[in-house]
Each structure stands twice: as C-alpha cells, then as structure tokens.
Amino acid sequence: MTDATVGYLVIGIAIVFVLGLVFALSSREGRLQQARPTPPPGVHLPSGSFLPVVLAIGAALLGAGFAFRPQGAIANLFLAVPGFVVLVGSIFAWVRAAGREWRESEHAADDDAAGH
C-alpha cells in the first residue's frame, strides 16, 4: 500500500469515527429544562445553524481537492467537486435563511411602527 492510500484510509476512518460519535451523542435524549431566559424587548438573537460547520467542511474538501492534485489535472475532482457543491449549496441556504430571518424581524419592526 502506498503512503497516500494509507493516508486516505486513516482520514476516512477518522471521519467515520467522528461522525459516528456525533450521531451517537446527539441522538441521546435531552433533559427537560425550564424555558430559556428571555431577552429584553427588541433584542433579537439568531437561532443556531448547521451551515457554518457545513460550509467549513465544504471549503476544506474543495481545498483538499486542490492540495491532492493528481499529475496533469487541475485538481482532485473526487474531492473538489463535492466540496464545491457543498460550499455553494450552503452559501445559498445561508443567504435564504438570513433573508428570511431579516424579513421576520423587519416585519416585527414594521408592525411596531404601524401599531403606534
């Protein structure tokens, strides 16, 4: 086995292990908790999002595609293309989610102005 194959195997196993750990831990039941303390009026806190992690992974895959460039090719397409798709896809999803949140909070402010 070449160096590179061993390397890919190690990385692949590590990714599967980490994903498995995340899956196992995140499937556990959460404790019931009293409602989170509410912010004062007018303070808007955005909800959590998977997109930063996903985008970072997409960027890393795209980068890895370039770093592991086979001879003569522009990049390792097996890594670069999925990376690019994930990257662009998460950017679109991000913009959509951000737009939706902005409009939700804007409408609240518009109602406020109208309600006076």
Binding site: R28, Q33, P39, P41, G42, V43, A108
Partner: peptide, 15 residues
C-alpha cells in the same frame, strides 16, 4: 415587539 427569541428554539435542552 415582544421577545424575539426564535420560535424554533426549543424549551428542552438538546444534546
């Protein structure tokens, strides 16, 4: 405007 904690925020603790 009432509190604007995102309506999808759950009241039980996620993992």
């Amino acid at each position: 405007a009432t509190t604007t904690l995102n309506p999808r925020a759950e009241t039980y603790q996620r993992s």
